[in-house]
C-alpha cells in the first residue's frame, strides 16, 4: 500500500478564485449544477454535491483579521472538499461495496458498482456525497484517484494559484500544517488552528485525510463543529457492522438486477 495521501487546505492562502472548482470539473468532466444567483456573497455553488466536488465558501465577517492593519471587516475564503475521513460514514454505510478505501487511503466511490441506494448520503457527517439527478448514482471527490495512479497531483491542487490547496503524503502535510499554525501564531494570528488534522482533534471521524487550517469557528465555514461517523454512535459497533453486512448482501443482490449498466 502506498503512503496515505491527502489535502491540507490552508484557508489563509485562499483568494477565492474558484480555480479548484473548475479544474475539478474539467478533469472529471462534471456537468454544471444549474445557474442560480444565490445572493450569498460570491458563492453561487453553495454546497458540495454530486457534480461539484470542490466548493469555495465566502464568509463576510464584521471583524477584521489580525493581519489586517485596519478596518472592521474581513472576507474569508475556504475551498471545501470531501474529507476522506479515517472513519468514513459513507464507506461504512455502503451496502454494495461501491465505496472503497484506496491504496492512497482515500475514499472512492466506484461508479460501476454504485446502485444509487443513497445510504451514504445520510451517513456523511459533512453532507459531502450526493446523487446526481440525471444518473441516480452517488458521486464525490475521488482525490483524483486516476491521476494518483500515474503520480499526478489532483487537478484542484495543481491549479490552485496560491498553494492554498496542498497535496501530499499525509504525514508530511500534518507536520507542515502544524508548523504553519505556529508560524501564524507568531505573526499575530492566534486564532489559526487545524480542523480535523488528527484523530485527537476530531474523534468522531478519527481524523480527516483532507483537513483544513481555519481562523474562525467551523460553523462559520459551514463545517460541523463535531462530526461523527454514524457507526461510531452505535454502542456496539460489531452489532452494527453485522447488520450492515446483512444489508449489504441484500442490497448487492438488488444491485445486480436493478443497477443497470451505467458506467
Amino acid at each position: 500500500m502506498a503512503a496515505s495521501k491527502g489535502f491540507f487546505t490552508d484557508t489563509t492562502l485562499c483568494i477565492g478564485c474558484k480555480a479548484c472548482e473548475v479544474a475539478c470539473k474539467q478533469w472529471n468532466q462534471l456537468p454544471d449544477d444549474g445557474f442560480l444567483f444565490s445572493g450569498m456573497s460570491y458563492d453561487n455553488t453553495v454546497h458540495l454535491g454530486g457534480s461539484t466536488w470542490r466548493h469555495v465558501a465566502f464568509v463576510e465577517r464584521p471583524v477584521p483579521l489580525n493581519t489586517q492593519t485596519d478596518g472592521a471587516f474581513s472576507w474569508l475564503f475556504s475551498s471545501d472538499v470531501c474529507k476522506h475521513c479515517a472513519r468514513a460514514g459513507c464507506l461504512e454505510s455502503c451496502p454494495t461495496g461501491a465505496i472503497i478505501r484506496t491504496e492512497f487511503g482515500s475514499v472512492y466511490v466506484q461508479p460501476d458498482v454504485c446502485n444509487g441506494c443513497g445510504y451514504c448520503i445520510v451517513s456523511c457527517p459533512f453532507g459531502v456525497i450526493n446523487r446526481r439527478e440525471e444518473d441516480g448514482r452517488a458521486w464525490k471527490c475521488t482525490l483524483c484517484y486516476d491521476r494518483l495512479r500515474d503520480d499526478l497531483v489532483p487537478a484542484c491542487a495543481k491549479a490552485c494559484p496560491t498553494e492554498s490547496i496542498q497535496f501530499g503524503d499525509l504525514d508530511e502535510l500534518r507536520a507542515h500544517a502544524k508548523e504553519r499554525v505556529e508560524q501564524l501564531h507568531e505573526r499575530g494570528m492566534p486564532e489559526a488552528y487545524l480542523y480535523g488534522a488528527s484523530a485527537d482533534d476530531q474523534p468522531g471521524t478519527e481524523g480527516l485525510n483532507a483537513f483544513f487550517l481555519l481562523v474562525d469557528k467551523p460553523e462559520v465555514y459551514n463545517l460541523p463543529p463535531d462530526p461523527v461517523a454514524p457507526a461510531k454512535k452505535v454502542k456496539d459497533a460489531w452489532l452494527a457492522a453485522g447488520a450492515a453486512a446483512a444489508g449489504m448482501a441484500l442490497a448487492a443482490v438488488g444491485a445486480v438486477f436493478f443497477g443497470g449498466h451505467r458506467a
Partner: peptide, 17 residues
Amino acid sequence: ALDGSTAGSSRTESLAS
C-alpha cells in the same frame, strides 16, 4: 473494505489518468 486491492472493481483496478 479498508483495502482497495480486494474491493476494487476491474474498472477501478485499471483506472489511470
